[in-house]
Design a protein around this nucleic acid. Structure first.
Lengths: 175, 175
DNA sequence: ATTTATTTGAAACGATCGTTCCATTTGTCC
DNA sequence: GGACAAATGGAACGATCGTTTCAAATAAAT
């Protein structure tokens, strides 16, 4: 399954052929369809698989003593990954731009994913506001969506520029 | 040419078939290849066409009396377009995620485009720093790349969420 | 008006797309 | 060991992919 995700990640949905998938997995075509139904179903499964792995990285309120530091660590980690040569972007970001306009099911999935992440951020921000790490005057909802949008921006920009530490710091200056 | 751009914009490179292009333009296949060489060449031409139109929207130092307001206006304009239902994202952003890893020529084009935009921002920021609109202590280069990255983020996020006025204001708070 | 270029229509190219079929092999239970 | 279900290999499906070909139609030049 990981190798399938890798493939969609690198080549996109339309750019990945059934032959690619068969070759990469080593499975036979018959077994493949027996297991994964069809290409689109497999792709949705890949998105879910990726989402679960990715969302483990997003800190919850209890992970760190400092909720603000939790957010900071997340962004610094991504920034470091980018600097170290991770230029694949984000599978979900990539397929946002590729399929959102064509596939309502994908759009729903991505909106749901966005809400999940934004809600995580909101919890962290509110916790940070309660213990004085973040200005309580700020609207946590807006700030959370801002962080989400900034994350998308980082992910896309990282594919053509790996020097984003300064940008990351600038983003974190908002909280 | 505009209808071709529209098509690539909506469906991506791999998602757009030659049949789509022939149908949309009304041209015959022969005339098509006579005019545009092949699909990839046409796509590169589309990117250039789009880039030229888009970069006209980016204000230069002389456009506004206030360089800071020039940047503000650009972002507010995009924010308003998004609110009014523009959910196609940016053709260049979309093809960044689709083709950058596969096509070196596209990667070069996009890096060049990034540099152009960042340089425009640098000029505006430096002008704004000289007349006291923006804190002269800030690194104009970093700030410019931050604005570029934020633009990408807005463009991607707009495809699944149209309520981005608050986010835009948050971005502009950095300058 | 006749010759020369250029542009068009439509069919067809080989390759590949995602998917299905079926004969064969493998594994499982009585 | 024999009956039955499951998984596998590989050919083949129709459809579509990007591209080419070529004769007919049109335009330009002499």
């Amino acid at each position: 399954m990981d190798v399938v995700v890798e493939l969609f990640w690198k080549k996109g949905y339309n750019g990945t052929s059934m032959q690619d998938l068969v070759d990469a997995t080593g499975l036979n075509r018959s077994s493949f369809y027996n297991t994964f139904v069809d290409k689109f179903t497999l792709f949705e499964a890949s998105l879910t698989h990726y989402q679960q792995k990715q969302n483990q990285l997003i800190p919850t309120v209890n992970t760190f003593k400092s909720p603000k530091q939790a957010i900071t660590s997340l962004f610094k980690g991504i920034s470091k990954d980018i600097m170290n040569g991770d230029q694949k972007g984000c599978l979900l970001t990539n397929c946002t731009t590729e399929l959102v306009k064509q596939e309502p099911r994908i759009k729903s999935f991505l909106q749901d994913n966005k809400n999940k992440i934004v809600n995580s951020f909101i919890s962290l921000i509110q916790a940070a506001q309660e213990n004085g790490e973040i200005d309580p005057e700020k609207d946590s909802q807006t700030l959370a969506l801002y962080l989400f949008s900034s994350l998308q921006g980082l992910r896309v920009t990282s594919m053509i520029d790996t020097q984003l530490e300064g940008v990351t710091e600038e983003i974190l200056r908002s909280i």
